[in-house]
Simulated scan of single mutants.
Amino acid sequence: MSALETTLKDICILRLSALGDVCNLVPAVRALQRRYPQARITWVIGRAEHSLLTGLSGVEFIVFDKRTGLAGMRAVWRQLKGRRFDVLLHMQVALRASLLSLGIKAKRRIGFDRARSRDGQHWFVNEQLPDSSEGHVIEGFFDFMRLLGVNDCRLQWDIPVPESAEQQRHRWVEGDYWIISPCSSDRAFNYRNWTTAGYAALIDYARDRYGLKAVLTGGGSDQEQALVRDLVVQCQSPVINTLGQTDLKTLLALIRDAAVVMAPDSGPVHMAAAMGTAPLGLYATSNPQRTGPVVGQQYVVNKYPEAVAQCLGKPLDQVRWGQRVRDPKAMALIQIDDVKARLDAIMASPQSVSEQD
């Protein structure tokens, strides 16, 4: 281990988004804190992501609001004026993040290896991770820590939930319930959402067989609101609709106390893993071995290999690691019986996800 690694005192992490990714980064930050308990850790983070992680012990947050563009970058730079870090962990490959990094002064500027890098990130760093072509997203984050001499990479989150969120959670629902977050982010060619008929069938099944109330979560986008309107019509069971009506801390509390969280490849799957709740992830357009929940993978419905074969016309071993399937037909490969089987397995298990893993 180098002399520098034994004297790290001031560390900057640059990771702005997204909700699932910042959840996955927290265990790496905890590992860093265990290795360097006296170090000052500053995390430059996005606005929404900060609202999820605010109060995280031992971390100073600098918030960047991407809606403000260059003015927002300058605001971050002003807050960091006069500071020079021992190391900058540049953990987001987007060009916006790299431009933001120009105002962060550090002796060492570490970025991803060429295989995992994009948008010219290598021009903004002076070190890169060792090559690693495959692995879960969280392993990429731990690779940064290993480069700093961190060996204890156990999973630990401890994301705080304030009393105000606890109170709001109990106002929404009491008794046994599960979370359905039906929509992923509304981006072009995303195609991660399952069928409305599928969600409706599972809501009725969970109510009839397990007595679980259905709590719908998500944002207030037109896409989400339209899907939920259709979903409510197709369900025989009543649902509790919280879309656009909870902050992220309240959502975290709801997820923590739920029996199950069902969602496509999106933030709530990773929030569930962080809170020890079974994540019933629905995956076809992305590889859950890379972007699925880091714990509870046995409960994921994985139709990614079939989607690669049918939509891309290739076997799994002939596509690059992390290849997306951008085809609107892919998620229809997930059958209702596939999801029922995962729900049954979760409900049959007496242990929490954290105890199992």
Rank of each mutant, 00 (worst) to 15 (best):
Pro130His: 07
Pro130Phe: 05
Ile110Gly: 01
Leu148Ser: 05
Phe144Met: 04
Glu139Tyr: 02
Gly135Phe: 09
Arg114Ser: 14
Arg108Val: 08
Arg114Met: 08
Ala106Pro: 11
Leu148Gly: 04
Arg114Ala: 15
Gln121His: 11
Glu127Val: 03
Gly135Thr: 08
Pro130Lys: 07
Ser132His: 13
Met91Leu: 12
Gly111Arg: 02
Arg96Ala: 09
Met145Gln: 03
Lys105Met: 10
His122Met: 08
Ser101Met: 09
Met145Val: 06
His136Ser: 12
Asp131Cys: 01
Gly120Leu: 13
Arg118Gly: 01
Asp113Trp: 03
Gln121Ser: 14
Phe124Tyr: 14
Phe124Asn: 06
Leu147Ala: 13
Arg108Ser: 04
Ala115Phe: 14
Glu139Cys: 03
Asn151Ser: 14
Lys105Arg: 15
Trp123Cys: 09
Glu127Trp: 04
Asp152Trp: 09
Ser101Ile: 07
Gln92Pro: 03
Ser117Asn: 05
Asp152Gln: 15
Phe112His: 12
Trp123Ala: 13
Ser133Cys: 00
Gly140Ile: 00
His122Arg: 12
Leu99Thr: 03
Arg146Met: 08
Val125Trp: 03
Leu148Gln: 04
Gly140His: 11
Gly120Val: 05
Arg108Thr: 11
Arg118Leu: 08
Leu102Glu: 05
Met91Pro: 04
Arg108Trp: 10
Asp131Val: 13
Gly111Glu: 05
Ile104Gln: 01
Leu147Cys: 15
Ile104Cys: 02
Gly135Cys: 11
His90Glu: 07
Glu127Cys: 01
His90Pro: 01
Ile104Pro: 01
Arg108Lys: 10
Asp143Val: 00
Asp119Glu: 15
Trp123Ser: 01
Gly103Ser: 06
Gly135Ile: 08
Met145Ala: 14
Leu148Ile: 07
Ser117Leu: 05
Asp131Ile: 08
Asp119Val: 01
Gln121Phe: 11
Ile138Thr: 07
Lys107Trp: 06
Asp119Cys: 12
Asn151Arg: 15
Val93Thr: 11
Phe124Met: 08
Ala106Tyr: 07
Ser133Phe: 11
Gly149His: 09
Asn151Tyr: 01
Gly111Ser: 07
Asp152Cys: 11
Ile138Asp: 00
Gly135Asp: 12
Leu102Gly: 06
His90Trp: 01
Lys105Glu: 14
Glu139Asn: 12
His90Tyr: 02
Phe141Thr: 03
Phe141Leu: 08
Arg109Ser: 08
Leu99Asp: 02
Gln121Trp: 10
Leu147Tyr: 14
Phe144Trp: 03
Arg114Phe: 13
Ala94Glu: 13
Arg109His: 11
Arg116Val: 02
Gly103Gln: 06
Gln128Glu: 13
Met91Asp: 04
Ala97Leu: 09
Ala97Pro: 06
Asp152Ile: 10
Lys105Leu: 13
Ile110Asn: 03
Arg114Lys: 14
Ile138Pro: 00
Asn126Gly: 08
